[in-house]
Amino acid sequence: MTELIATGLTLRVGRATLVDGVSFCLRPGELVALLGPNGAGKSSLLRASLGLQKRSGGTATLGGRDSERLNPVTRARLVSYLPQIRSIAWPNVVRDVVALGRFSHGAAIGTLREADRAAVERALDACDLLHLANRRCDTLSGGELARLHCARAFAAEAPLLLADEPVGGLDPFHQFRVMDITRAFVGRGGGALVVLHDVALAARYAHRLLWMKDGRIVAHGTPDQTLTAERLAAIYGVRACVDGLRVALEGAA
């Protein structure tokens, strides 16, 4: 079973400590939401745990192996990564962009092997993109683009997914759709760590919540256990009314 396990993970850049002794794990079959204000170190935590950014201390293992020492292809087969910056440099068609997700399997667009082609079609189907497969990606709407990036990530068919704000900038309907797609991935046995800013959305979808502030994990548990008005005040500095998993934000504290 492929797990991502970070222990005492620390990342310093210059004099700033972006991630400060963070421990967490991600297993297949669970959806974990990483919550925290801007600048809490969420993106840095993802990069450092993947081994994409050199950590200053602690350990992070993927499938039992040090993530920093994994070669990029092996890493990509264990975990798909959806960074916050999601640009597509050229006006490629949707199917070709999704096929780029098969890079770690040796695929090249235009000459896909049968296994790669099948994985691309499955990913397109999972993200409801089959009818757009031949559209140029510069003609897609924001919601369609978000699904395209999900499909690109799923095409690798890696057991784990790390997604940095996959619903950023989407309307409520498309936020639900992307989260449904992610939950379906978890239902198929995948493990997903998703950075979210919408606490209610996280509470509705995630099995566990990781609350992060100033580079540290300050709370960790199921939504029932950790979602309180006090927590929202402490983490985000907002007044909120919490009733079970329902959250109503009322203003800055």
Partner: peptide, 22 residues
């Protein structure tokens, strides 16, 4: 380098994520 150039279409970070040795 041609396959890597295609992967870079996604941007450097995502390209590293799909398995490119940047």
């Amino acid at each position: 380098t041609r396959r890597g150039l295609a992967a870079l279409t996604l941007g450097e970070e995502a390209a590293a994520g799909v398995g490119l040795n940047l």
